[in-house]
């Protein structure tokens, strides 16, 4: 079911230039994005096994949505000099998703903001691995997970910094909230072989902020509403900064709908 509807072309060739694209059966498994091209890619409920190479100065913006169960994906992104890739990932169904990034050219930059919302007995596993193979690259991974019912969510991600990848700037954050009988496991990992780097990662699994809930109740919101509002806020900022602005509204709707069932 497609919620995000714009004019998109299905990728049919192995080399792609500026434009707004989506996947189809005809999409080859290895696709190159031309140097300097500005590409938007929308993947919604499509199984994806794709290796993308961004030539120098290419810009790729991806919105990846999974609202139907059993749609798995494995995306590889290889960035050349000064290439830039930004991804927003929204998951509200059972799935296994893997993203492997290789920053292979100086000045390349990668950002991923993801969120998974699970209820019932849904299970989802997310991997985001980032390799800094050369110096002067930047990566940001922010993944938020909310699991309720008896769902199970797992995040794992390795940030690898090669011996010569000096002046790497990397941040990885996994923040999670569990409710009811749900279970979350998070494994952020750092493997660092260069020393002039700025690398950090963090992971939290925690409940809602009591103080904030108190504050909202004092303003008249019921306990239910206060909790919901807080979770909304928690996941919203990932989608509010989605790289394809026109998608934001739909993404927010998808999240809100899912939140009702939590």
């Amino acid at each position: 079911m497609r919620r995000i509807s714009f004019d998109t072309q299905p990728i049919g060739a192995a080399v792609v230039g500026t434009g707004r694209w989506t996947l189809s059966e005809a999409t080859p498994s290895r696709v190159t994005i031309e140097a300097g091209a500005e590409v938007e890619l929308i993947i919604e409920n499509q199984p994806a096994k794709l290796q993308l190479t961004l030539e120098r100065d290419a810009r790729l913006r991806v919105v990846h949505v999974i609202t139907e169960a059993g749609v798995h994906s494995s995306l590889g992104v290889n960035l050349r000099e000064n290439a830039e890739c930004r991804v927003a990932q929204v998951i509200t169904a059972a799935t296994e998703s893997g993203v492997e990034v290789s920053l292979a050219g100086s000045g390349a930059s990668f950002e991923l903001g993801g969120v998974f919302l699970l209820s019932g007995d849904q299970r989802c596993g997310v991997r985001v691995d980032v390799r800094h193979d050369v110096s002067d690259c930047r990566s940001r991974t922010l993944y938020k997970g909310v699991a309720s019912g008896s769902a199970r969510g797992e995040f794992s991600g390795i940030v690898y910094v090669a011996p010569d990848a000096q002046r790497t700037d990397s941040e990885q954050l996994s923040r999670n909230i569990t409710m009811a009988d749900a279970h979350i496991a998070t494994r952020p990992q750092l493997e660092i072989y260069a020393d002039d780097v700025r690398c950090s990662h963090g992971a939290t699994v925690g409940q809602l902020d009591d103080q904030a809930v108190l504050y909202m109740r004092q303003r008249g919101l019921s306990l239910e509403m206060a909790k919901r509002l807080q979770i909304e806020g928690f996941v919203s900022d990932v989608v509010l900064h989605a790289p394809i602005a026109e998608c934001c509204e739909t993404l927010v709707e998808i999240l809100h709908e899912k939140l009702q069932s939590l």
């Binding site: 999670n176 979350i184 496991a185 998070t186 990992q189």
Partner: peptide, 8 residues
Amino acid sequence: HTFPVIES
């Protein structure tokens, strides 16, 4: 290297 595993 840092390999934490956090499970709740």
